[in-house]
Computed example of a mutant assay.
Amino acid sequence: MVAVDLLARQEQSENKLREKLARKGYAEEEIQQAIHRLEEMHYLNDEDACARQFAFLYEESRSSVRQICVKLMQRGFDSSLVKACIPADTFEREKAAALRVLSLKFKPAADRQKMMANLYRKGFDSSAIRAAVETFCQEEENND
């Protein structure tokens, strides 16, 4: 029942659910039985959960693909599951997300190196960084 309650509050990976149940003091055998039962009932499926969470973060956030991958792995999803969710071509999405980050933090007249360094620290790809900074600065020139 505790496992179902945890899943009702928030979608969990199998690893995170195991970790939370162990912290609550359940024996490994009880945890295994609960996990097995949840999988039988289709309440727990790491593949589907990872794909849903990746899609949400990819579409709704301004995080880089690298940040999204790290976040999902921290949530207990296997790296191979996370990497399988990454679309083949992420350039346009990365550029758009980087532009959102720049527009929230910088003015177009800001130092390009600072903008690029900020995006790099956030895990964006170097080609997307260059394209986003170029586009962001061109918008300033077009507004003048």
Rank of each mutant, 00 (worst) to 15 (best):
A8R: 14
A8F: 03
A8S: 14
A8I: 04
R9V: 05
R9N: 10
Q10Y: 03
E11C: 12
Q12S: 14
S13N: 05
S13A: 12
E14A: 07
E14V: 14
E14H: 08
E14F: 07
E14K: 11
N15P: 03
N15K: 15
N15A: 14
N15V: 12
K16D: 13
L17K: 01
L17P: 03
R18N: 03
R18S: 02
E19I: 03
E19S: 11
A22P: 06
A22C: 02
R23T: 02
R23S: 10
K24G: 02
G25C: 02
A27H: 04
E28Y: 02
E28A: 14
E28M: 05
E28V: 13
Q32F: 02
Q33Y: 02
I35N: 09
I35Y: 13
H36S: 14
H36P: 00
R37K: 10
L38Q: 12
E40C: 04
M41L: 15
M41S: 06
M41H: 04
M41A: 11
M41D: 04
M41E: 14
Y43H: 12
Y43N: 01
L44R: 01
D48F: 11
D48C: 07
D48R: 07
D48S: 10
A49D: 02
R52H: 03
Q53W: 00
F54K: 02
A55N: 13
L57K: 14
L57Q: 12
L57V: 00
L57Y: 15
Y58M: 06
Y58W: 13
E59I: 00
R62F: 09
R62K: 09
S63T: 08
R66E: 09
R66A: 11
Q67N: 08
Q67R: 13
Q67E: 06
C69F: 03
V70A: 05
K71E: 10
K71S: 13
M73I: 09
M73H: 11
R75Q: 15
R75D: 15
R75Y: 05
G76S: 08
D78M: 11
S79D: 09
S79Q: 09
S80I: 06
S80H: 10
L81C: 02
L81E: 04
L81G: 04
V82R: 05
K83M: 11
A84P: 01
C85F: 08
C85V: 01
I86Y: 02
P87I: 10
P87S: 00
A88T: 14
D89T: 12
T90G: 00
F91E: 11
F91T: 07
F91W: 07
F91L: 13
E94L: 03
E94H: 13
E94M: 06
K95S: 03
A97D: 07
A97S: 13
A97H: 14
A98R: 04
L99S: 09
V101C: 14
L102Q: 03
S103M: 09
S103H: 12
K105V: 12
F106H: 07
F106R: 04
K107P: 00
P108V: 04
P108M: 11
A109E: 14
A109F: 13
D111F: 11
D111T: 05
D111G: 00
K114A: 10
M115I: 10
N118P: 00
N118Q: 12
Y120N: 00
